[in-house]
């Protein structure tokens, strides 16, 4: 889901950089207020955690493997604003140092994976697990549903961003200058694979990790 350079036109890249500037400023202020001084390194450690979640290969039926993104999981564990900063830092490191995701597309990638995915997932998790007794399985199920919907929301938005390119940037003769497929192709292509395969990987990983942590480290869920 990391958008490389060259897929999005200058207007889209500029728009998402501008939007993310405002979100990053708000996130810094909110996190600075809520994070205690001794928790200063947790953002960096969480960012590294977000980075390496993608290196855990998950077996799926048929002998293949896939990986989760982990944006919703980090949001459930840290809250959506801290998750926004942690996932942003992981995405910047990936784009700048490892060529995973484009430099001009950092704004769009951060909006999809560090804003939409954690916020959508977090509030779905909160809505479903609201008032759930600690030893009920509702939190685990809520985490799975939140992971599935959060990832798919981000994937569909990525499809919309791709699909808008031929409409936003084209020559006088109608030739596309960036991603060549319109909404009718880009959105189903992105949604299809995520709704059918990757969404389920995200759901299973998010639910199982919440299940393990609930058992081994219940302090992470005391306030929820």
């Amino acid at each position: 889901m990391h958008i490389p350079d060259g897929y999005l036109g200058p207007a889209t890249c500029g728009f998402f950089y501008g939007l993310m500037m405002l979100i990053w400023m708000a996130a810094s202020k909110i996190v600075k207020k809520t994070l205690k001084a001794q928790q200063a390194p947790i953002l960096a450690i969480s960012a590294a955690f977000s980075f390496v979640i993608m290196m855990f290969n998950v077996p799926i039926p048929g002998g293949s493997t896939g990986h989760a993104v982990g944006g919703v999981l980090v949001a459930i564990l840290l809250g959506p604003w801290a998750a926004c900063i942690a996932v942003t830092v992981a995405l910047v490191v990936q784009a700048l140092l490892f060529g995973d995701g484009g430099i001009t597309a950092i704004g769009a990638n951060c909006f999809n994976m560090a804003v939409v995915m954690p916020f959508v997932g977090y509030y779905i998790y909160k809505a479903i697990s609201h008032n759930a007794p600690f030893n009920s399985n509702r939190k685990v199920i809520a985490a799975g549903i939140a992971g599935y919907i959060g990832l798919n929301a981000a994937a569909i938005l990525t499809g919309v961003e791709f699909g808008l390119q031929p409409w936003l940037h084209h020559t006088a003769g109608g030739q596309a200058l960036y991603c060549p497929y319109g909404l009718n192709i880009a959105v189903p292509a992105m949604a299809g694979e995520h709704l059918l395969i990757f969404g389920w990987i995200e759901a299973v990983v998010t639910a199982l990790v919440v299940k393990y942590l609930k058992k081994q480290a219940p302090e992470f869920f005391e306030e929820g």
Binding site: V58, V204, Y212, L213
Partner: peptide, 12 residues
């Protein structure tokens, strides 16, 4: 995989 991710989070 899930228990390893959970363990890594606790260690982190």
């Amino acid at each position: 995989v899930a228990s390893n991710i959970a363990g890594l989070w606790q260690r982190s």
